[in-house]
Design a protein around this nucleic acid. Structure first.
Lengths: 350, 350
DNA sequence: AAATTGTTCGAAAACGTTTTCGACGCTATA
DNA sequence: TATAGCGTCGAAAACGTTTTCGAACAATTT
């Protein structure tokens, strides 16, 4: 026989007393509590998850939904696990557990999430790879499950934390213009990830501030893969006049882009400036090293955790003034892929 | 009021009937079953996980434990998520769910696993990053929880699936010797991962078969990171006589190694041959491209799933002759990092 | 017509835990 | 002495589900 009943019998106490001792209730004598704790440790008793969850109506578990296909194409250096580490750092103080829910590549994310929510597997959720007007937002709000997204879903208000896509796009354009570029391409995700909208917005704003007209042929949708980068390279090289620089909203295609350029005798960086959104193994190892932007993924996880807890009734007291929406700043990591243009075509604004 | 009770009332049936209809029992009229299914779909009823798990004594959930620190240093291209996709492909046929259990970097893996097991969160486990004589093996066997490991734990017999580290090490040496190399270094993990033992074993065997004596200074322990690769490079270049090639048991340090070589004016590939264990974004993007070995991670996941199910009483019937131990073959991906030596030093065996 | 079998459903128990509420003994107060 | 209060513990209910077992009825056989 296992469980709290066995432990109670072994200690010659009632189940209620044992339970209360283990859970730190105040109507238990200090000596008996001690005895119970010792006994539990000795017998290796840990409360059964299902029983506790059923009775309490809470699992003390938070799910982090990621899409395995999306992950394998988004993730060049284990982005998600680093973020998890930050989230867990926050959760452990509240005895909350984090589990990762991998949505298989052949399953609809919204359906998957719906099942998870309906089964009551978790108390709250973190979801990533947010799409523009992502249907999962409505689902979660409807089910009244606390959640936070890694990346907002358009203009609807909900708790989110995201990296500063718009700011990075803007800074990238500024930097390139400053270095003599005028014809700057931008690579956007092929899917409807909301970050694409934000990146394009920042790109357009920055162009406008420099008096450069937006040319739609310079905004190229790119598959999130090495092959996508190669295609991007071919596309860019066909444009007339040819762009002198390109900003990648995502770093993974950079390798393919370099390859496409090298195959055509174009030297990356020198003949075509390149800036990528996020520093990763890719941006570090390619030659010339790509100028990119970085942030602490662990801190990003901490922000996610805190934002989420501040929306949960049982925990919000601990985070009285946590922002429900939070843009995470990115720091420039200067590389060698965007040197000043040798023969800059000066724009009208300089 | 939620739950099966509400649904039963709404349909004017008993809870038992509804439950049996939903679970496909055979003592329910086809019409009533139809009616129940419709009603459940309409009301969006899904059985509560805790209630079901408590009653059945089974969660129909399998955990995949990964270590977030280990992951972020092991994972240059989202290895785990690709494997998950394969596992889920097997599981979905049996209505099993997969959740990923990320062990925080500041938590002891064995303790973490112990808690998971004691709480009865999952029916079975997949564990990765297996160490030599990993304490988790004994823990799982003791708790009688079905499990499979990604990588065996030394000589103890337990269900495992692993990539062919020994074979790859051997093939790498063969290939390098064939191309004129005699003084071949090998990079091994700094930690006690069992794959290090296997890799070294294959390396030694191959050397012996070519009549080359093993030199312990050529077996270098390397941190699983870019920085570790740089250190490796410095170490190798100090050796006299200098090795003409190096085999990496893990590809991530390759970038740092290249950097160390380039910094010293040594051309990777040409002046020092390089072979890396597994193809990844790293091996693809570095120039010259590294010769490596590849396999389908999805198939690896499928093998893991099948092996695990064949050890679970409720599912083993579906996998009558699945091997409990399985070495996954790796395929050579020839790159440009190990061309034939220009002035080969012929060994005694040729 | 009676007895047997088969089909379909419902009442109630069970899973392991927490929590409410009352019981009990003791001390301090009136 | 009687009463109130306090500290400590236990009995029992409750959480949502599945499953066992028997009831009710219809169909078939004797």
């Amino acid at each position: 026989m296992k469980g709290i009943r066995a432990l109670a019998r072994h200690l010659d106490l009632s189940m209620s007393t044992v339970s209360k001792a283990l859970n730190g209730r105040f109507d238990i004598n200090a000596d008996t509590r001690e005895r119970v704790l010792k006994g539990a440790a000795k017998l290796g008793y840990v409360a059964n998850q299902s029983g506790r969850a059923l009775r309490q109506g809470t699992t003390r578990t938070v799910g982090f939904m990621i899409e395995s296909n999306q992950a394998s194409s988004t993730d060049s250096d284990n982005f998600f696990m680093a973020v998890c580490d930050g989230v867990q750092n926050v959760f452990r103080r509240h005895r909350l557990d984090l589990i990762v829910l991998p949505c298989a590549s052949d399953e609809d994310p919204a359906e998957y999430l719906g099942r998870i929510v309906a089964r009551g597997l978790v108390d709250a959720l973190i979801i990533s790879a947010t799409r523009h007007n992502d249907p999962r937002i409505a689902l979660l709000e409807n089910a009244k499950v606390p959640f936070v997204t890694l990346g907002r879903s358009g203009d609807v208000t909900h708790p989110w934390v995201e990296m500063d896509f718009e700011g990075v796009a803007k800074l990238s354009v500024d930097r390139l213009v400053e270095r003599g570029h005028q014809r700057i391409a931008v690579s956007l995700p092929e899917t409807d990830l909301n970050l694409g909208h934000l990146f394009l917005k920042g790109y357009k704003k920055a162009l406008k501030s420099h008096g450069i007209p937006f040319a739609s042929e310079l905004a190229v949708r790119t598959k999130s893969s090495e092959a996508g980068g190669y295609e991007l390279g071919s596309t860019l090289l066909k444009l007339r006049p040819r762009p002198t620089a390109v900003i990648l909203s995502y770093e993974l295609p950079a390798g393919g882009l370099y390859r496409a350029l090298n195959d055509t005798g174009i030297i990356p960086g020198q003949d075509l400036g390149v800036i990528a959104f996020r520093e990763s193994l890719i941006t570090q190892h390619l030659v010339p090293r790509i100028t990119s932007f970085a942030t602490s993924l662990r801190d990003l996880g901490i922000a996610l955790g805190e934002t989420l807890l501040s929306t949960m009734p049982d925990f919000r007291d601990a985070y009285p003034h946590a922002a429900l929406q939070r843009i995470f700043p990115m720091e420039l990591v200067a590389g060698d892929s965007d040197p000043p243009l040798v023969n800059p075509v000066r724009g009208s604004d300089t």
